[in-house]
Amino acid sequence: MTDEPLLRVTALSKYYGSRIGCEDISFDLWPGEVLAIVGESGSGKTTLLNCLATRLLPTSGTASYRMRDGQWRDLYRMSEAERRFLMRTDWGFVHQNPADGLRMTVSAGANVGERLMAVGDRHYGNIRSTAVDWLSRVEIGEERIDDEPRAFSGGMRQRLQIARNLVTGPRLVFMDEPTGGLDVSVQARLLDLLRGLVTDLGLAAIVVTHDLAVARLLSQRMMVMKNGHVVEAGLTDRVLDDPRAPYTQLLVSSILQV
């Protein structure tokens, strides 16, 4: 384990006019650590995620990222070119709706290969064999490599989106409700796959979810958000087994027991 965090967030706030998106959020994320951000719709968790992933600019506060060369960079002071480069190499972003993260009209192989081509890979054979490898890691058969994601089921699309993100070996992946909108059985398979990949690759991840079971299975740490504020944070099992904030207790007690 490294002595330095990967991401350092200090007093981050985002306002939409006078309305609070999220306010005064601070935390550190270490390499290989999975942080879950939970809360209901409108709690500000997606606003926070989008600020961290530089898809939104915060109103105030800073977020610094330790680049592969060990240099710390302020995310909001980087040039757009650098930021976009970071996003397609060292970062990943898994959208809730796979159609938002995939190119629906090009083949699965090209979806996976796009990042490689973006960083200058110009050997078709190598790109294709890397794509085959990644498709198999997300349990998509080689025979589907030339099919468009339009022909895939929801679960397969989501797995394809994950492969597309991981092909460049990112160190940090943002996930926005990665299992939302999937059937329960498909969800379980995806979660299990994600968990395996995160462990095997030593990925750091920030996972936004309203599903506490997802948080329990994937994350070591979690933050509970309500009305734009973090109301409770800590080890995932501590927060879930001994919830302290009134809102967290409500969330935990609201889970349906099967």
Binding site: G234, L235, D237, R238, D241, D242, R244
Partner: peptide, 9 residues
């Protein structure tokens, strides 16, 4: 036991 494991605050 759970406090010792950090599972309870």
């Amino acid at each position: 036991l759970k406090m010792v494991y950090g599972n309870y605050g």
